[in-house]
Design a binder for these strands. Structure first.
Length: 278
DNA sequence: CGCCATGATTAACTTACGTCA
DNA sequence: GATGACGTAAGTTAATCATGG
């Protein structure tokens, strides 16, 4: 499919003009949540993203189908703590806190977004056959922009965004979760491509060195020939790691990947869901 | 043209785990 | 240290859409 190809092309546009990391660090290691927060809020790699999005919104938008039906009452009740494990707020514990106030605000937002809601759901009988809603182009755009600024939301931001977009806070929350997952997946693809290139380069270098060893062995067996040849290899210190490096004609480093111009990419990625087209 | 099968995308969900009070 | 609340990542499910035959 065309969209897919576009995506991959974007994904694999490896670090042209993008600062590379000094050494390879898989970016998808599971971090403790707080370090993740810091990492994210410092805006390191996220700032590198180019948020322009492709098919998803243009799809629904261009076809003029507003699939973004407002949530049903059933969903709203879910958000109030009926079923969702992530957003359940215990009303039993008596301690009133800021958090509880926020939960109430969320419930309020629920009701608000539900009040204008549709009644097309089949009864809302609690069975909650999940109805998938498509976000409108505008909603996706705002979400993307917000994600660009910070890819996690605190409860207040979540509420504000939900109000602004006329969505349930839970929807905003889920959108950000999914968006982070997609971002990570993309970065994994980039990392994977980078490692593949490294591997290819190392394989080539290894092959070359083996060949050289063979030649040297052959020469050792015929010393009179050896006398008439230039030394095929000189040993120098690699400036990067201060080890003895093989320096044949081209390279004076023991980092063949670097010598071959392979640099680790750092997220030249465009988003997937609903952004601005470029 | 409509219909169906198939694959891609993504909203919504579940589970597991880490952190904090 | 045990516990509960909470947030997030990872994985899954299912709705929706595009495309090709």
């Amino acid at each position: 499919m065309g969209g897919r190809d576009d995506e991959l092309r974007l994904t694999l546009s490896l670090g042209l003009g993008v600062p590379t990391r000094p050494s390879f660090q898989p970016t998808h290691i599971h971090r403790p949540s707080h370090s993740m927060h810091n990492h994210i809020r410092n805006g390191s790699w996220n700032e590198l993203f180019q948020f322009s999005d492709r098919n998803a919104d243009s799809r629904s938008f261009l076809r003029g189908i507003d699939v973004n039906r407002l949530p049903t009452v059933v969903d709203g009740e879910e958000e109030n703590g009926v079923s969702s494990p992530n957003s359940t707020v215990s009303s039993i514990s008596g301690k009133r806190s800021e958090r509880e106030a926020e939960a109430e605000a969320e419930a309020e937002a629920e009701r608000a977004s539900c009040s204008q809601g549709s009644d097309d759901e089949d009864g809302g009988g609690g069975d909650a056959s999940r109805k998938k809603l498509r976000l409108s182009k505008e909603q996706s755009m705002v979400l993307e922009e917000t994600f660009k600024e910070h890819n996690t939301l605190n409860p207040k931001q979540k509420l504000a965004l939900a109000r602004q977009l006329n969505l349930r806070p839970r929807q905003v929350e889920v959108w950000f979760q999914n968006r982070r997952a997609r971002t990570k997946l993309k970065q994994t693809e980039v990392d994977c491509e980078y490692l593949k290139r490294c591997c290819e380069n190392l394989t080539g270098e290894n092959r070359r060195l083996q060949k050289e060893v063979q030649e040297l062995r052959a020469l050792k067996l015929s010393p009179q020939l050896y006398m008439h040849m230039n030394p095929p290899t000189t040993l120098t210190m690699c400036p990067q790691c201060e080890r003895v490096a093989v320096s044949s004609s081209s390279s004076t480093t023991c980092h063949p990947a670097a010598a071959a111009g392979v640099q680790r990419p750092s997220m030249p990625i465009k988003p997937m869901g609903g952004g601005v087209a470029d």
